[in-house]
Write a protein that binds this DNA or RNA. Sequence first.
DNA 1: AAAAATGTTGACCGATCGTGCAGAAATGCT
DNA 2: AGCATTTCTGCACGATCGGTCAACATTTTT
Lengths: 214, 214
Amino acid sequence: MIVANDVNKTVRGNQSRNREEITARILSCAETIFAEYGFTGASISKIAALAGLPKSNIIYYFESKEALYRRVVGEIFDIWRDAADAIAIDNEPIKALGDYIDTKLDLARTRPNGSKVWANEIIQRAPIVQDYLEVELRSWTDNRIAVIDAWVTQGKIRPISGRHLLYSIWATTQHYADFTHQITTLNDGKELNDAQWAETKAAVKDILLSGVSL
Amino acid sequence: MIVANDVNKTVRGNQSRNREEITARILSCAETIFAEYGFTGASISKIAALAGLPKSNIIYYFESKEALYRRVVGEIFDIWRDAADAIAIDNEPIKALGDYIDTKLDLARTRPNGSKVWANEIIQRAPIVQDYLEVELRSWTDNRIAVIDAWVTQGKIRPISGRHLLYSIWATTQHYADFTHQITTLNDGKELNDAQWAETKAAVKDILLSGVSL
DNA sequence: AAAAATGTTGACCGATCGTGCAGAAATGCT
DNA sequence: AGCATTTCTGCACGATCGGTCAACATTTTT
């Protein structure tokens, strides 16, 4: 007997469908817990409780705490890498850098936990993802700095240090994610609203980029 | 029998002298461990091992893990508070802000662990020091922002957001402490030397303050 | 319908957690 | 010298840690 339009069975079976749902849920909850407690301080029990699953199930889908953690870190790293596509030699410098700041502030708002996980990992001297830093982050950073320095050489922007400008953009944009709690507390305990985020974007671009323009 | 010039007994007894030495050593080691692992991830055993003491001894001098942690956080908070004295209404704005950035970058180099402890605590939503945030940090921040905004009103600097400028200074200066490991890795695995720190100070001031000058 | 593959879970392991506590050791005081 | 106080530390506790595993449930394949 064939049941028409049974969405659960048309394309693929329940198993693979649930597998994706569950792994996504675990990854999301793991990001939250790792963000709050760091790798060492986080526990599989806490992740499992947040996801509403027995902890054995976490280990079933991700073979270890470290493997799960690497997946979480890898996600935010990829997202940030894509965001930096704006910094390309042929783009107009101020617009490119402004777009990059906008995108990173959007990510600070929508994915603060990813940023916190990264911050925790670096503060702890990257015990798990040092290979990321030495290979991928390294070449990726060098390329972006080269673009900024080239803009300087071409006389398109004021002679500033590409490296320190990039670090300042990272620092400032990620601050609005990592220090959300501090910012919220200083904002009468209320999260920034749409208008305040717009104001933040404008202010950060103003502060960081008015020294870059000729 | 009186033993002359016995430095251990001249001014005060061994006990009070050792007490100060030991508490200072524990505080220093605790800062290192809390910086690396956060409150939850840190353990008294690790602190004790680093200090070369049995863990019972840690509890003897500081009644609990949380009490020890509060002492560590309080120290860096006081240091940062004093550093902001430069931001006073009667000072010349660019020099005052430049001095503040210099001081905070000096602290990033000399006391990176304090900065990391603070970062960890905020990332974790200040479970231990929320009272600091709501009372002391709050009024202290409002006062500094008022000074910067007054400079704007007086026409001494360009009209920028005092709050976001302050946040940007915090973010950038603390980035060089909290993300030391990343910066070191991107610097061929070598810590920044004196010349590079001088370059950092100049670059950060250039980037953050050239948008502030009239 | 039987067999195979996949998903789920509680019980359990050795290690480590924070901390209380008794008593030993050292020091201060009279 | 003798007592009081302070310093120091080993041991023990219940809780939690990451991870293994066997038993069981469900789904897919044959």
